[in-house]
Design a protein around this nucleic acid. Structure first.
Lengths: 128, 128
DNA sequence: GCGTTAGTACTACCTTGGTAGTTTGTTGTC
DNA sequence: GACAACAAACTACCAAGGTAGTACTAACGC
């Protein structure tokens, strides 16, 4: 019984989830306001999307009077990991170093970021 | 003019591309054989998918008699980077360390892999 | 020559993400 | 009590991924 597939989410769904993760709960109107670039979208677009997402088990809602207050039903970590692992496995056969290598050559990474990475890896090495 | 969107490919498309990258060229039947789990799919499924992919600019073909020989029209690096960057940006706001951190906690990573990562980062640091 | 085989082409259907208009119902206000 | 405002529900479309059956056609074997 596949527990809500979290590795294939569209950009809009992701952005909506981000708003919910950040705020805990939000009405359709609040999601709409907080959504980056949400001004371009109709109110009903957000509402429809939220209903679809609820049908897929990504969010839940409770009623507050006639207004629905939505809440994420999947954890941020669950989604982040699900999507990141999906790409890692499908594209790089699970070889993390390959993935990082691609990303390092493809973009600017600050020195601070590199240092953080070094620390992460060193720590992980110590634990194994 | 958006150059073929390479960040949103389905799993089947990806697997087909992998076969083509690996072999250079392949007929529908060859792709079908090489496809992991391809035995579950109908021949026409692969053929249809290839035609759709050609329409999207992902592959091209030449005819060899009555048989079509397909070839990838997008580079592996282009796709890998496109998809990896997409996830990195959408999910982790571009913070590579966050992404790696998630991946490191979510799965087993061999010591050899960790060492390779260290080397990559050290090298990158030297260049900056 | 004729039938079998092995290709592609065409068509069709389902799902999901994305987008939004229209309808219906509730609520609060004058 | 009538009406305006607003929220959700319903309906509708489009694009794309995925899947495959059916139709057409060229080649090959006998």
């Amino acid at each position: 019984m596949s527990q809500t597939q979290v590795h294939r989410l569209g950009d809009l769904q992701l952005q909506i989830l981000k708003v919910l993760w950040q705020r805990g709960e939000a009405s359709v109107a609040e999601v709409h306001e907080q959504l980056p670039g949400g001004a371009d979208l109709a109110h009903t677009t957000i509402a429809t999307m939220l209903r679809k997402m609820e049908a897929r088990g990504l969010v839940t809602h409770r009623a507050n009077g006639r207004t629905f207050i939505y809440r994420a039903a999947v954890a941020e970590d669950q989604v982040s990991q699900g999507m990141a692992e999906h790409v890692l496995d499908r594209l790089f056969e699970g070889r993390l170093a390959d993935m990082v290598s691609h990303l390092l050559t493809a973009r600017e990474v600050s020195r601070a970021e590199l240092t953080r990475l070094e620390q992460l890896i060193a720590e992980r090495k110590r634990q194994s």
